[in-house]
């Protein structure tokens, strides 16, 4: 399996410390357009829960976080704060509840926490005004868009979801569906 972006980055920072092509700004190095490395790593874990890898690739392999990050610098730029503050609050909640970051938790524990988020069963000051379920469904919808939408937006890498659903792509013009009209016209007449 390919190394994902997070592990790749981790490797880089461990190996280099201060690599020449990075500006030296204390731990804030991020390959992403909008997200910080911390946010991206949490979001990677959440989106992977939403579409987990099995015999077919999951959200991480399809580049869903790349999709979200790209949209946050474009069409979804108005949602930057919702992501930033929501992710921070959710991580904070996870730490208080379990003593660890969401990413570090066992799969089923993660699933449980997201179900709580989805159902507004979350006790955290941030969610008093911003309902937790709305935050969850935003990420859920964007994950689906990134996984099932067109690759031109940064997700669905190599059309993985189309392959999974066995939808031919590209769609070849003039391929195989010309049946002679004379045969078809009369078949279904009542």
């Amino acid at each position: 399996m390919s190394i994902n972006r997070r592990e790749f980055l981790k490797g880089l920072t461990l190996a280099g410390g201060s690599l020449l092509f990075f500006p030296a700004c204390k731990g804030n190095i991020s390959f992403w357009r909008v997200l910080t490395e911390e946010e991206a790593s949490l979001l990677t874990a959440i989106t992977e829960q939403i579409i987990p890898a099995d015999e077919d690739p999951g959200a991480t392999d399809a580049g869903v976080v790349n999709f979200i990050d790209k949209q946050l610098s474009g069409f979804y730029s108005g949602l930057k704060d919702s992501y930033r503050n929501g992710l921070e609050a959710f991580q904070d909640y996870c730490r208080k509840k379990t003593g660890a970051n969401f990413e570090a938790l066992a799969w089923d524990v993660q699933t449980g926490l997201l179900k709580d988020l989805e159902a507004n069963r979350i006790d955290h000051p941030y969610w008093e005004e911003n309902t937790a379920s709305r935050f969850f469904s935003m990420i859920r919808n964007h994950t689906m868009q990134g996984f099932y939408g067109s690759p031109r937006h940064g997700g669905n890498k190599n059309y993985v979801s189309y392959k999974m659903m066995r939808i031919d792509y590209p769609h070849v013009i003039g391929r195989n569906i010309y049946t002679p009209r004379s045969e078809t016209l009369n078949i279904y007449q009542p």
Binding site: I50, I51, P52, D54, D56, G58, T111, S161, M164
Partner: peptide, 11 residues
């Protein structure tokens, strides 16, 4: 609405 079961349905 999400998770393995949702993906299975899609597939």
């Amino acid at each position: 609405g999400w998770g393995k079961e949702h993906k299975d349905f899609q597939r």
